[in-house]
Write a protein that binds this DNA or RNA. Structure first.
Lengths: 233, 233
DNA sequence: CAGTGGTCTAGACCACCCA
DNA sequence: GGGTGGTCTAGACCACTGC
């Protein structure tokens, strides 16, 4: 646990947050304005501003010019997840990471993928599959498509040595990401590679990546049975 | 789409971000220090500081005193989700929200729940089940436990009129939340209420809430078949 | 119109930590 | 030791919007 250093704006922020979570100020209540708070805390208005602005970013309060700052009715509306590279994630758990490249082929873009990526022209995709292991256990099955129109050099890369994620990070920047999470039933391929039964419920993460409006890659990650993605706020 | 107003720190931030995503500055590169940037942009150092600090918060750069500011190797590692109240979520999609209270009973705390909440003493829990509908379709099945040791007044509340989420928000503040997401197979109860087949894969969200180290409530939300939780970064 | 937050400045001191 | 970011101040002007 990292103990944040003492600083005036942090003191103000924690004090105000405490008043909110403890119920001194209830949902919908107006809190004092910045000038008053600055006087009360004996600091500059800018310091109060930073404290209250961060509380607003975190969803504790709502600010409006002239109307003032009010405590939000439904706090903690936001959950943030760190999205680690799978190898780091497994290493952090103390397991040995291993990556198995299953195969790759060049295909014309399937219709569903064109829709998902917002592509309207024809073009080739490089399709890859791989399994990520934690120690001896399959941890995640990866099915990836790389847009060869945007990244022709992917056709020449050797993904048996370097995983596609790592290769992509080193090769191209990206500006937009869409992620979604859902549940799916294990089909034969998934059941085989993740060592589970046909139809088993699996946690699924999908990620589409763009670089300045140009779709780069789509990846579908199926996790081992029972996987949970957890966060604390 | 909201167009953020023009402001100096935003201009600086967008300019720097563009240099990063466009690859002018590659992963690991050192970017100019705050004094240099302030001179280049013709603004105060505090303005640059805010811009770069926000980029650091968003995971684009890494800052270290004396060492300077460097572009992160794996950017966009964080995804944030808005967690709306289910009624608002459904209303926002243009559907009519309806809530059906199925039942409630007082139980002694199951062992798995004690472990999850970090409870060591014995105590009673109020257990509730409900279904949330979007128009005529079941959207989400809710199974909730409320810690009666912390909230004895829950035993007297009438949850057929007001959903437990709403009641809790109005009744007690909370300071810590743990959320997790996974996949599960529909059991008989879920299959019946969500109108799907036994064993169907369902997306599951679980949330445990504390108020100052005291566990308040645990809720398990199973979504209709095919539900996806999506975010753009 | 006037009160509130939003932003900016110029300068300052300090903590951290790499060299 | 010294360079870099972290924070703070006192004051200023501005933009928005409820009254």
């Amino acid at each position: 646990m990292v103990e944040p250093v003492k600083s005036a704006f942090r003191t103000v922020k924690e004090t105000l947050k405490h008043k909110i979570v403890a119920g001194d100020w209830g949902p919908g209540d107006l809190i004092p304005n910045e000038v008053e708070l600055a006087a009360a805390f004996g600091c500059a208005r800018a310091t109060v501003n930073r404290a209250v602005r961060e509380l607003a970013d975190e969803g504790y309060v709502e600010r409006k010019r002239k109307a003032g700052t009010r405590v939000r009715t439904a706090p903690l509306r936001r959950a943030a997840f760190e999205i680690p590279v799978v190898g780091d994630e497994i290493a952090a758990r103390g397991s040995v990471y291993r990556y198995e490249h299953l195969g790759q082929q060049t295909l014309s873009t399937p219709r569903w993928l064109k829709a998902r990526m917002g592509l309207d022209h024809h073009g080739k995709m490089l399709h890859l599959t791989a399994v990520h292991y934690a120690d001896a256990n399959p941890y995640q099955f990866e099915a990836r498509w790389i847009n060869l129109a945007a990244l022709p050099q992917a056709a020449e890369a050797d993904f048996s040595l370097m995983g596609p994620t790592e290769w992509l990070i080193k090769t191209i920047p990206f500006s937009n990401v869409e992620m979604s999470f859902s549940a799916t039933a294990a089909d034969e391929e998934l059941a085989h590679h993740l060592v589970c039964r046909l139809g088993d419920p699996l946690f699924l993460a999908e990620r589409t990546t763009w670089w300045q409006a140009e779709p780069i890659t789509y990846v579908r990650l199926a996790f081992q049975r029972g996987h949970k993605m957890t966060t604390r706020v």
